[in-house]
């Protein structure tokens, strides 16, 4: 369902883009006329008059309004979304990625690279930045935008070197008593041969153990898909927020279906059973809040999403500023000790 709507809106987006270009052209002609210049690119020597450009500009404007309304109408048809729809939105390629969140939320970003042991894993992006006058450490999964970037970032699937890089960066934050903000968006840890040889399990376990002992606040925001240990390894946080259409689960729905029913094609069915939407995660006590997204998803109005995240970060950081380092650590321990408590 949501897939068709996204296809439609993509088509409309393309038209809108083209029209905007055209309109810009007309506007620049008008400006030149105002300045009393003759357009030099008119091949027949007969440039259209300013009235004509104005007319063109106006008709572009009208058409744009029409298309934008059409798009809104489409999005409004969306109706209630299924869990599988959430997964489609969470993975949608146009969704803001870590670089966008860094640009939209922070200033003075300084990227830290490499695990300083063996390699630089591009699927993790991290560094130090300023948030409303306070230095913070930022770490998250990086998926890349173009195909080349996707490949160089391994589609956001870290190897052990990525987790070790993240840990190194976070430990530096602990040393300098800087809050840590992580952005979660990964299909999972990379299931490759070298990843295994280099200790994928150990790297994830080490992150969990070390993060549990940090005395600075860790705040995680699941922005896209958060799958399995690969997501958990960056989200052992005091507070975890989810974007409205983000998902967080034990495994990808495809993996889940293939383990449970030996049939990955039943992934949509799996989504419904997995309790993986933001609302489900709040109910489970794993997520502490939901950051609203515009109709159709975060890509429709990224600025609004950044503003909503900033508000949440602001108030959360303020709350932790009043706490002692030991209390911050105990707060995180308590959270994970309590989730899904089993008693006998």
């Amino acid at each position: 369902m949501i897939r068709q709507i996204l296809e439609k809106t993509e088509e409309l987006d393309r038209k809108i883009e083209a029209l905007k270009e055209l309109q810009k052209d007309e506007a620049s002609h008008l400006v030149r006329h105002e300045a009393g210049e003759r357009a030099e690119d008119s091949y027949d020597g007969e440039d259209a008059g300013p009235e004509e450009h104005l007319e063109q500009w106006k008709s572009c404007e009208k058409e744009l309004k029409h298309l934008e309304k059409l798009k809104r109408d489409f999005l409004e048809q969306t109706g209630p979304l299924s869990a599988a729809d959430h997964v489609v939105l969470a993975r949608y390629a146009k969704r803001p990625h870590i670089e966008d969140f860094i640009d939209g939320l922070f200033t003075d970003f300084f990227e830290q690279r490499g695990d300083h042991l063996y390699d630089e894993d591009r699927s993790i992006c991290g560094g130090i930045a300023m948030f409303h006058g306070t230095p913070v450490t930022v770490v998250g999964h990086r998926k890349g935008r173009t195909v080349e970037e996707n490949v160089s970032c391994n589609f956001g699937m870290p190897c052990p070197e990525g987790y070790r890089k993240a840990l190194r960066i976070m430990k530096e934050a602990e040393k300098f008593r800087r809050p840590i903000i992580t952005f979660i968006d990964t299909p999972g840890a990379y299931p490759g041969m070298e990843a295994e040889e280099h200790g994928q399990g150990e790297a994830i376990a080490r992150n969990l153990a070390e993060m549990s002992a940090f005395t600075v606040p860790v705040i995680s925001i699941v922005t896209g898909e958060g799958n399995s240990g690969g997501a958990l390894a960056l989200s052992m946080a005091n507070r975890l927020y989810m974007l409205q259409y983000a998902v967080y689960s034990i495994l990808s729905p495809e993996g889940f279906a293939s383990i449970l029913w030996k049939d990955a094609s039943r992934h949509e069915e799996a989504c419904e059973l997995m309790h993986m939407t933001a609302e489900d995660l709040v109910e489970a006590g794993v997520a502490d809040g939901i950051i609203p997204e515009p109709l159709g998803g975060a890509q429709e109005d990224p600025e609004a999403v950044y503003a909503a995240i900033a508000t949440e970060l602001d108030s959360t950081l303020r709350a932790y500023r009043a706490m002692s380092p030991e209390a911050i650590r105990a707060d995180r321990m308590k959270k994970f000790r309590e989730i899904g408590r089993v008693s006998a």
């Binding site: 994830i204 376990a205 969990l208 153990a209 070390e210 549990s212 002992a213 399995s228 240990g229 958990l232 052992m236 967080y248 689960s249 034990i250 495994l251 889940f256 383990i259 449970l260 997995m274 309790h275 993986m276 489900d280 995660l281 489970a284 794993v286 321990m333 994970f336 000790r337 989730i339 899904g340």
Partner: peptide, 21 residues
């Protein structure tokens, strides 16, 4: 992981690792 327990199963990794730490 115990698939049938979903995210609760995943969270056991965090809980046990923290306890060991």
């Amino acid at each position: 992981a115990r698939m049938q327990e979903g995210i609760y199963s995943l969270m056991q990794m965090a809980k046990t690792a923290a306890a060991v730490r």
